[in-house]
Design a protein around this nucleic acid. Structure first.
Lengths: 253, 253
DNA sequence: CACCATTGTGTGATTGTGACACAATGATAA
DNA sequence: TTATCATTGTGTCACAATCACACAATGGTG
């Protein structure tokens, strides 16, 4: 009970620093084991999962708020972030109901009558993330994007839309490298493409894929090869941001 | 002076119905004379132009607010609307400075310290729009998208970003038909594409363009031809939303 | 050291895109 | 009434992009 009072106190303090009706929700994508993953939180003492998110401070730049929230969750501060949609249905959620599901006293309902949430998706390198808790969170872990449970609020819709936005942009921009370690093999890159675009394994022809991706000229082949696999050692490649900038510059309309 | 008091009173009443820090700005596109146009407002007694926009009511759905604002401005209520970005830099504008430019007393500064604006663009059929005034607006008219003057707030940036979003989506979805009358010729459609994509006239090959656009199968050729031009009368075409839905369905991933 | 799954590499077939010409037509002006 | 002229409607060939496909080399495993 005392803990509960502390929690409510912390929430109140947070509110005083925030814009009342405006929040940010982040869909954090990672790639591991040929699966696209999303980072989800479980609130203390409940089985209710949700996206990481938070309120925007009164004097804060929108992007800064998104970075701050992600830093709190993942420990990373240099991540790829992309705003994709703002959600503002006036029936996005029922504050009292949510309070109840969170095991909080409904008479203290701190959710505004109406809230607008700005959706960002983030691309992070899976292995660098250390999921972090806070005073409201009991668990924070990765979920396969195809096995997301029922989430609080309208977060299922937000996640679905983030995935759609990611797929769309993935075609036009070289986003994939944010999800891979610095050095990677072309087959890893191919698996990433297949996974994100929802294709089955080896749907893309290996030779054609490699030819195409290398023709863009912003991948650098290293001398090094990847060892440890049970077979012929493949070359490692590196994404060169400068060459990519050149490429982009040459190919814009 | 009395009028000024009325205006401030109206604004106050509006605020009471609205979410404090959240507004919508609309970039309304129209097509006329082979030019892409944007609808701009000039505030009463000033030379300050801005995008049409407004505050979101407390109980209002985001999309509904955007439709309402456009209805107020253009008289249309069935328009193509697309959310494209949310703007939330914490230095988007200086309230007092804006009050001064609007000729309002700066000690009544009613702008919130910090505001977030959700950007929508609209595609409307030029000839159906009747620009409308309100108590703050003295003039409302179309501007060539290449000759937009300096606007209030960060509206130049918003307009630029809307255009970018439009161009991007224009490639992937059949948006153009929202900007044309119901019946149109293929050469009108071609001019529209060239204008929006920023190409010079006849940059697209007439035969190839027509072949391609007809191959999609969602245009219907009418018996009717367009007369009145000084030359051979071209066929009129109609966009068939049902066939387009079929096309979309078949071509999604 | 034999095995085997995986890597690295090139060519021909198919499809899509871009360039291009000429007869028919409808309003205009003599 | 008719000649003029800009514009419409239509098909083919060249080139570029994409796709399908095979085999020798290699590095760990047993």
């Amino acid at each position: 009970m005392e803990e509960l009072i502390t929690v409510l106190g912390e929430i109140k303090a947070l509110f005083n620093r925030s814009l009342g009706e405006l929040s940010i929700d982040c869909v954090v994508f990672g790639f591991h084991d040929d699966q696209l993953k999303v980072l989800l939180l479980r609130a203390k003492g409940t089985d209710a999962w949700s996206l990481p998110g938070g309120w925007i401070f009164k004097t804060e730049h929108l992007e800064d708020a998104a970075y701050r929230i992600l830093k709190e969750r993942t420990g990373l501060d240099s991540i790829f972030l992309q705003q994709f949609h703002t959600f503002g249905a006036n029936n996005r959620y029922n504050g009292k109901e949510i309070m109840a599901r969170l095991g909080l006293p409904t008479e203290h309902n701190f959710f505004p009558e109406r809230a607008v949430s700005i959706g960002y998706y983030a691309l992070v390198e899976y292995s660098l993330v250390e999921p972090k808790m806070d005073y409201m969170t009991e668990e924070c872990r990765w979920w396969d994007v195809n096995e997301i449970p029922e989430l609080l609020f309208d977060h299922n819709e937000i996640a679905a839309r983030a995935l759609k936005a990611l797929r769309k942009q993935f075609d036009n921009e070289a986003l994939g490298f944010n999800l891979l370690p610095e050095k990677f093999t072309l087959i890893e890159l191919q698996r990433l493409y297949e996974t994100i675009l929802g294709l089955e394994k080896n749907k893309l022809d290996r030779r054609n894929f490699q030819k195409k991706i290398l023709s863009y000229g912003f991948l650098e082949r290293l001398e090094e090869r990847k060892t440890g696999g049970a077979h012929k050692a493949p070359y490692l490649y590196r994404f060169d941001p400068e060459k990519y900038a050149t490429y982009q510059h040459e190919n814009e309309v």
